[in-house]
Amino acid sequence: LIVDEAINEDNSVVSLSQPKMDELQLFRGDTVLLKGKKRREAVCIVLSDDTCSDEKIRMNRVVRNNLRVRLGDVISIQPCP
């Protein structure tokens, strides 16, 4: 998924579009594992966002710094076991 700027300022939340959440079989409030660069990982709570496009994930600056990614970078997402 492509990293995009978050609207809310919550450090533990990322936003996906509802069709993408359905495709990944995620529900609102699920915890997910995000994988960024240099084997960096972060655990976040996923919320749906109608304004977010299907191929993007919204996260704020703190999460991006933790993953060592910038806007427009590609990250992977998976549900936490």
Rank of each mutant, 00 (worst) to 15 (best):
V69M: 10
K35Y: 04
R70P: 03
D54C: 08
C52L: 13
T31P: 05
S53K: 11
E55G: 13
F27R: 13
V32H: 01
I7W: 12
L34N: 01
G36S: 11
D10T: 12
S76Y: 07
E9W: 08
P19H: 12
S17F: 02
M59H: 00
Q25T: 07
S53N: 14
T31K: 15
C52W: 02
L67G: 00
G29N: 10
P19V: 14
R61L: 12
I45A: 12
I2K: 12
M21V: 01
T31I: 04
I2V: 09
K56W: 03
P79K: 15
L24Y: 05
R64A: 11
G72P: 00
P19F: 15
E55I: 15
I75G: 00
N60T: 11
E55P: 08
I45P: 06
V32G: 02
E9A: 11
D10N: 04
N8Y: 12
I2F: 07
D22I: 07
L24P: 02
G36C: 13
E9C: 14
L47P: 01
L34T: 02
E9V: 06
R28H: 15
S17T: 06
K56R: 11
I2R: 06
T51A: 11
E23T: 10
S17H: 03
I7P: 09
I75Y: 00
A42V: 09
L33A: 09
Q25D: 14
D22A: 07
Q25N: 14
N65T: 09
P79A: 13
R39N: 05
V62F: 11
D30T: 09
K56M: 07
E5A: 08
I2N: 09
N11V: 09
N60R: 03
N66S: 10
A6L: 15
V14I: 14
I7V: 09
I75Q: 00
T51E: 14
S15A: 11
K35M: 11
S76T: 06
V74M: 07
D4R: 02
N8Q: 11
S53W: 05
D49V: 03
K20H: 03
F27V: 14
F27H: 13
R39D: 13
I2C: 06
L1T: 03
P81S: 07
G29D: 05
C52G: 05
L26E: 00
L1M: 10
N8C: 11
L34E: 00
R28M: 13
I75P: 00
V63M: 08
L33P: 00
S15E: 13
D54I: 07
V3C: 05
C44G: 12
V43L: 08
L16W: 00
K38F: 08
V3Q: 01
M21Y: 02
P19T: 11
K56Y: 11
N8M: 08
K38H: 09
C52Y: 03
E41H: 06
I2Q: 06
D4V: 08
N65A: 11
T31Q: 15
L24S: 01
Q25C: 13
Q25A: 07
A42F: 14
K20E: 02
I7Q: 05
K20F: 04
K20P: 00
L34W: 01
C52F: 02
S76H: 12
N11E: 13
I57R: 00
L47M: 15
R58L: 10
L67V: 03
V14Q: 00
V74H: 06
V46S: 02
V62H: 14
D10E: 06
D30M: 10
I7L: 14
V14H: 00
N66T: 13
L33R: 09
C52K: 03
V3M: 05
R28A: 15
M59V: 06
K38G: 13
Q18T: 06
E23C: 02
N60V: 03
V74Y: 09
P19W: 11
N11H: 15
N60G: 09
I45Y: 10
D73A: 13
K56A: 13
D50I: 09
G72Q: 03
K20N: 08
A42Y: 10
N65S: 13
C52T: 11
G36K: 03
D50N: 07
T51S: 09
R70H: 06
R28E: 15
K38I: 04
L34M: 09
M59S: 01
R39H: 04
S15K: 14
V63F: 09
D4I: 14
D73F: 01
D4Q: 05
K56P: 00
I75S: 02
V46W: 01
L33V: 14
L34F: 01
N60Y: 01
L67Q: 00
L1G: 02
S12E: 14
R58K: 11
L16I: 12
E41R: 06
R70V: 08
K56Q: 15
R28N: 15
V74P: 13
I77F: 04
V13P: 03
L24D: 01
D10P: 11
R64P: 00
V74F: 14
V62C: 13
R64Y: 03
V43F: 12
R40F: 12
P81L: 03
L67R: 00
G72F: 03
R28Y: 15
N8E: 13
V13I: 14
L26G: 01
V32Q: 01
R39V: 07
R40A: 15
R40N: 08
L71W: 06
K37Q: 15
L16V: 06
C80V: 09
R64I: 09
K20S: 06
R64W: 02
R28T: 14
A6G: 13
S15D: 02
S48G: 12
C44D: 02
Q18W: 05
L47Q: 11
E55V: 09
S15I: 12
G29K: 05
L47S: 09
K20D: 03
R70M: 08
R70T: 13
V62Q: 12
V13D: 07
D50F: 05
L67I: 09
E23W: 03
L1R: 01
R28D: 14
M21L: 14
V63S: 05
D10G: 08
D22S: 08
I7D: 13
M59L: 13
V14Y: 01
K37M: 15
Q25F: 06
V69I: 11
E55Y: 10
R70Q: 06
N65M: 09
R58Q: 05
L71A: 15
N66W: 04
Q78A: 08
R39C: 14
K37P: 07
R61N: 08
C52E: 03
R70S: 14
E41C: 03
I75K: 00
R64S: 04
E41L: 04
L16K: 01
I7S: 10
M59R: 00
V46I: 05
C44T: 09
E5R: 06
N65V: 06
D73K: 04
G36R: 03
M21H: 00
D30R: 04
F27W: 07
E55K: 10
R61C: 12
L1Y: 02
V13E: 06
T51N: 15
D49M: 01
R64M: 10
K56F: 06
